[in-house]
Amino acid sequence: MGKVAMLIDTSKCTGCRGCQVACKEWNDLPATTTTNWGSYENPPDLSASTWTRISFHEVADDRGVRWLFFKEGCLHCTEAACVEVCPTAALQYHEMGFVSLDEDRCNGCGYCVEFCPFQIPRLEINPLTGQGKAYKCTLCQDRVTNDLIPACAKTCPANAIQFGDREAMVTMAQKRVEELKAIGYTNAVVYGDKELGGLGRIYVLTERPSVYGLPENPQVPALTRLWQKGIQPFGYAAVGLTLLGLGFNWVVQRRVARAAEAEEEG
């Protein structure tokens, strides 16, 4: 099976948010309560029940006004920090080239949340059981492993979301950037073709990545490699009981903080 990828061409996106809703429909994600905070954009952030959303960016300069729409969600890194740190293999590299998530295996440790260079996964604590689960876009892993394309890609009215063979997506993205440059989008760039070993989500951007809130040069946190290549092979003993108390403390604190945030988001 070849690697697949999603191509998001921001120059074509109309911000209709069909993708945002189709994701919720397919994945049975509930709506959250929102308020208008002076923007078309809502919900205001990704969450356990919002795995993709459109952020709206207004740019006004000597070239006039531009209204940019950016589809947020998991970038499905080839070198994925979340997979590297996931202690339960709930997060895995799928052979098709995306980062799969098995909810049943997730123990809610929250490392993926901490280590993701794009700050994508979100942890939700069940208020009754206290059990946490991490959530993020799975690239509709059930659809793509059953010969369907992701719900967001299928629903996109503007053909701004393409899905298919990764190499074809990269080629398409590069070609599109050339076209855009030719018609005056001098900042147009492909994002994700090479970053972090190549992402499973590739963007065609008309502005610099930072305009959309993307890191210009994302890195897998150094510690991730240390964890995988250094500490994990030693086994638990090497980490030592001396660290256990400290670590446990940290996890608990993180959980409390996240739960409080989740309540605020309501």
Binding site: R105, C109, E114, D142, V239, W250
Partner: peptide
């Protein structure tokens, strides 16, 4: 962070901490 990560894995029930690498199946 790293300490937390390592410790977290220790909190798991026996066996689950071992990174199970066989690909899960995802029915529709």
């Amino acid at each position: 962070k790293l300490s937390g990560a390592a410790a977290g894995s220790l909190l798991l029930p026996g066996g689950a901490a071992l990174a199970v690498r066989e690909a899960p199946q995802f029915p529709l």
